[in-house]
Amino acid sequence: MKRVQFTINGDLYEREIHEHRTLLHVLREEIGLTGTKEGCGAGECGACTIIMNGVPINACLVLAVEADGTEIETVEGESKSGRLSPVQEAFDRHHAVQCGFCTPGMLMTIKDLLQRYPKPSREQIIEGIEGNFCRCTGYEQIIEAVLDATGQLEEKGEIKHA
């Protein structure tokens, strides 16, 4: 067991943890922040993406002891003010959520993307979310939501009638 401290979404947490536990499991099972999801446990699907010290990571590939002293951001922090973030609002408008299981990881990836590219092109968005699997939406409405959130959506992505 090892005592670790980290800041999650601005709040300080201190826990006695087993050295072998991943940050994902500690977040979900010991801290109780279950917004971050586990899709594969092997760093392949991106569902567990969080931001640690400003860098997006797969929480399933990081041991919790490695997070000692870090600043962590998870999906729960995005609406802490009681209001959805502009990206969350755009996801809502564009049906960029279906089953919702990839959504938290997707949002954190996009948060990082927008910090690097405040007005990302369609290609940059695709490149940015490439590591986050979504099996439901086919990604198009997610891409449109990001374009809309950054004031770049030209077409409203409507269904056409024959």
Binding site: C40, A42, E44, C45, I125, I126, E127, I129, E130, G131, N132, F133, C134, R135, G138, Y139, E140, I142, I143, I159, K160, H161, A162
Partner: peptide, 24 residues
């Protein structure tokens, strides 16, 4: 039996253009 060896589509696999049309 893994995503490394059984790929599924990512955002990069989306066709350049997709169109959705309804007949009623």
């Amino acid at each position: 039996p893994s995503f490394t060896d059984n790929k599924i589509p990512t955002a990069k696999d989306l066709p350049l253009e997709v169109e959705s049309i309804s007949v009623e």
